[in-house]
Amino acid sequence: MFAVLKTGGKQYKVQSGDLLRVEKLAASAGETVQFNDILMVGATVGAPFVQGAGVQAQVIDQIKGDKVIHYVKRRRKHSSQRRKGHRQQLTLLRVTEILEAGAEASGVKAAIGAGSVSAPSGAAPANAAKDKVSAGGDDLKKLSGVGPAMEKKFHEAGITRFAQIAAWTNEQAAAMDARLGLKGKIEKEGWIAQAADLAKG
């Protein structure tokens, strides 16, 4: 049996026993995590996700990808050039089990990005976000530059309270910035400081 899961904005077709490299997850080597955003299990296609399905995997190691060189050169008089290297942080996993149903009751830690605050076990990030909002999540639109669309992105990433944003480290903020494609907006707008003030009430 195979499944198609979604994580880090990418889709992966996996079978039990497969080795998988995904964008860095908030998990340590030896831990078992569960992916809940499942697009397909066998011939069953989700809309948008297959309800109750999940893919469990064991974290083998936190690694870095191959170096990518970014080189820019401007020709003509007074030319300039710049060369930068980058190695993406990744998590190496081994798929252990594919669940067609009952994933929400498995009790296994949900697989979330390293820049996110931990989500409840056995719940899809999107569903967890909805539960938190209905239970009284903060109005994230109070942050400068955050509208309904951006607030929705935060909810899908499991961020529903100012205290979560205020607790980000620089590394976590950079990871969330890259994950949501914010182009440095977290730092430019000073969301962490704003969130800290708003969290105080």
Results as ranks from 00 to 15, higher is better:
A110V: 05
S134G: 06
A167N: 12
R82P: 01
G122W: 08
A29I: 00
F35Y: 05
R179L: 09
K6S: 14
G115I: 02
L20T: 06
G190H: 12
G42W: 02
P148N: 11
K67E: 14
A114L: 09
A43D: 15
I165Y: 11
L182Q: 00
A26H: 03
K142Q: 15
R76L: 09
S106P: 07
D177V: 05
R179G: 13
V55S: 04
K6P: 13
A178Y: 02
L99D: 02
W168M: 00
L5Y: 00
L198N: 05
G137D: 06
D131C: 10
S106W: 02
G107D: 02
A126I: 13
G107R: 06
I63E: 07
R179M: 07
G181A: 10
E189Q: 14
G184H: 12
L99A: 04
A167D: 15
F49N: 00
V68F: 11
L90M: 01
I69M: 11
P120R: 05
T160H: 08
N170W: 03
Q62F: 08
I60R: 12
L19G: 14
K153T: 06
L182S: 07
S28R: 02
K132D: 13
V55P: 04
G52W: 03
E151A: 08
Q58K: 15
R21A: 06
I192R: 13
K185C: 10
K10T: 05
Q164E: 10
A195W: 02
A166N: 01
E31M: 03
Q89M: 14
V33I: 08
K24T: 10
R161D: 15
H70F: 12
K142I: 06
E187G: 02
V45R: 09
N127F: 06
A57G: 15
A196L: 00
R75D: 07
Q89A: 15
A199K: 04
D37V: 05
I38D: 09
K77V: 04
A167G: 14
S116H: 11
G147V: 02
A135W: 04
K152I: 02
D18G: 06
A128I: 11
E189V: 11
D197V: 05
G113Y: 06
K109A: 11
Q15L: 01
N36V: 10
Y71E: 15
K10F: 04
Y12V: 05
E151M: 04
G158R: 12
E23P: 09
N36K: 07
A47F: 05
V117A: 15
A149F: 09
D139K: 14
A119V: 12
G30S: 03
K84P: 12
R94K: 08
A103E: 00
W191V: 14
G9W: 13
W191G: 15
D37F: 01
S79F: 09
A196V: 04
S134C: 08
Q62Y: 10
F35C: 08
Y12M: 00
D131M: 10
G137W: 07
A119Y: 14
M150Y: 14
A111F: 08
S116R: 03
L92S: 09
G42R: 01
